[in-house]
Nucleic acid binder design. Sequence first.
RNA 1: GACCCCGUAGCUCAACCGGAUAGAGCGCCUGCCUUCUAAGCAGGGGGUUGCGUGUUCGAGUCACGCCGGGGUCGCCA
Length: 574
Amino acid sequence: MASIFEEVGALVAEAVAALETDGTLAPGHGVTPVIEPPRDPAHGDLATNAALALAKAAGMPPRQLASLLAMTLARAPQVERAEVAGPGFLNLVLAPAAWEAQLRAVLAAGDSYGRVPTRAAGLPVNVEYVSANPTGPMHVGHCRGAVVGDALANLLEFAGHRVTREYYVNDAGAQVDTLARSVHLRYRQALGDAIGAIPDGLYPGDYLVPVGEALAAEFGDRFRASPEAEWLPLFRGRAVAAMMDLIRADLATLGIRHDIFTSEAELHARGAPAAAEARLRAAGLVYDGTLPPPKGELMEDWEPVVLPLFRSTAFGDDVDRPIRKSDGSWTYFGADMAYHAEKAARSSALIDIWGADHSGTVKRIEAAVAALTGGEVPFDVKLVQMVRIFRGGEPVRMSKRAGNFVTLADVVEEVGPDVTRFMMLTKRPESPLDFDYVRAVEQSRENPVFYVHYAHARIRSVERRAEGLALAEAAPLDRLDEAERGLIKIMAQWPRVVEQAAAAREPHRVAFYLHDLASAFHALWNRGNDDPALRILVDDPDLASARLALARGCGHVLRAGLSIMGVTAAEELR
RNA sequence: GACCCCGUAGCUCAACCGGAUAGAGCGCCUGCCUUCUAAGCAGGGGGUUGCGUGUUCGAGUCACGCCGGGGUCGCCA
């Protein structure tokens, strides 16, 4: 069944078409009227700007056009009243039966209410998220991008897209060589060498100790004193594999699993950057040139050098960007460019979730994708701002260099995956987030996780209690009152929330919507505290079954939303 | 210097491709527990949406310019 917005949208479209038929309105105006719930409930259940948007095409004042539309719309059985308001808005009050039908649709669809059937045609949407460097366990800073990316992938699937969840493994370059050297030190340590303090520039974390021990057990002292060239590739491979195991285990604690891990090293091995360079050279977008000296802090060692440059300035970037270094090896950007070209070839759209510290590189990669796909594949980079972690208002320090950083595992262990995921989605990603261990587990209205769980637990409690009662089979939903229909109206917005959150790539909107829905449910529930006749399970079996159906429907929507967020719906809170 | 993000109630934040009188929570004030879980609910007070100009029937939302906070800048990763 169509959502209430689609249903009313169709009615409005019919009314507009009727005006075209009788010549009031010339066809071909290209206007799609917006149907939305008005902010002010006095403006009815739904409002449309159709007359405002079409006034120019009709050559008629908006209010006059609106009253023509109102006359047609008022004849529809779903519409109780159609009123012209303000500059030419058309406010619609729907008949109670229309809302009862919406509740029946929710109950029929169950937890799938609002889900769009998967579109089989075309390539999947690619969401790349986490992509943390394989040099250690995940820290809390990675956590937000991980949750936002995963929830976004869930949301897009719910909205009918096929989705590929992808992780780009930066297993090439200097940092993984550093990792390998750090592991070699731990390997010597495992063989009994006194290694002393970990030198500056190497990774100090204890998590490398077992990696060194495993290598010692397997290879004995074969690489103890041998030249670096003999062990570096081997140690690098083992270290990266071990780090990726750590990272996958961290992600698993949050229920996150990627479909594809793409290796930067393999990308180089199959010559992808060179292929991308050739295409861009042919298009005149890569040339050999010299960069101007960097602005900002003074760079004493800077010297002009001729390098292959990507013409990102043609796409709004400040300067052109080198794709290879003076020694001929690829820059990070050179590989990343090729990687995105490969992803674009197998995707209908690309979405990257990045930490805000990479904001400076967005333009060049957007430029590269536009250049390599001819603008055919939409590409969005969503920047996620940093997380600051607190305990009872006191900042908790983290420092990856010192090796004593707050890990993702620390957070999940302390507050659990559900709270972690929910909290990461309680703000727009582009706002910095303060995460407080104490407040995150607080059981109060102030805590949105708890608040939504509490609503669901109340519904489950009533459902359990109702199991032993003899209630009417088919709930007579016309017994519901105005306030109860108000809850249906909020539930009926769910398909639209899904559609718009998916289009905007903003999973946090689901969290906010669930909070609103839970709030409406709590309000209804509490009427029963003031007046026992307003409780759900009253003596009248017809009325009880109708109210139970309402609560059940609300439970379905709460579970649908929580499943997108990747949060378990609590059965009870004790 | 340049680029990116942010600026909305005392605080933390919303505001659905631009829509009508900008909404929640916290804190403050006033009510509601022999309960279907009061871990909650109802009501009250609180705003020049940082400033300005422009586009529009209509701007917190779009454009441009300022101001303020944060982040970034490299042949790094």
